[in-house]
């Protein structure tokens, strides 16, 4: 197997963390994995994305141009990545925020009102995880249990308030 994933959203939507969970899950399943974020000032409030590769082969380039799976959490991310998903790939769209529709017929598009669902669950901050679940539901390249395990082990550190 070889899966190349991009997760993209506003800073603070948890795109980077969702990617880390995937990476931990891949590692737990004995695969080669890599995770690389966009970094720098753009992370503060701008868009943040990360690239995750999970593979049976040692990973060369950790950055890729065209993902096989992609989660977009906000409209700018949709605009940027919707055209780039590889034919046969998966695009998971946070339809709570993204109004645009994909016209592509060569990929599988799944729209999930993730913010609304997260709100219903009682924590609007887990929209990223709702979308991750949706991706793995349709393209189970790692097991959901592995992600849940990773979540239990790596709850993100809260930054101290003085930052």
């Amino acid at each position: 197997m070889h899966e190349e994933v991009i997760i993209s959203g506003f800073g603070g939507q948890g795109a980077l963390f969702a990617g880390q969970l995937l990476t931990y899950a891949g590692l737990a399943e004995g695969r080669h994995v890599s995770w690389i974020p966009s970094y720098g000032p753009e992370m503060r409030g701008g868009t943040a994305h990360c690239t995750v590769i999970i593979s049976d082969e040692p990973i060369g380039s950790p950055i890729i141009y065209r993902p096989t799976s992609c989660i977009v959490l906000n409209p700018p991310s949709f605009e940027k990545y919707e055209p780039l998903v590889k034919p046969g790939g998966y695009l998971i769209v946070n339809s709570s925020l993204v109004r645009q529709k994909s016209a592509r017929t060569d990929i599988t598009v799944v729209e999930v009102p993730a913010n609304d669902l997260a709100y219903e669950i009682g924590n609007v901050r887990v929209a990223n995880l709702v979308l991750l679940g949706a991706l793995l539901g349709i393209n189970p390249f790692v097991k959901l249990e592995s992600v849940i395990q990773a979540l239990e082990e790596h709850v993100p550190e809260q930054r101290p308030a003085y930052h």
Partner: peptide, 10 residues
């Protein structure tokens, strides 16, 4: 470089 500094790997 920045790529090696920022990326995660096992």
């Amino acid at each position: 470089d920045g790529m090696l500094g920022q990326m995660m790997e096992p």
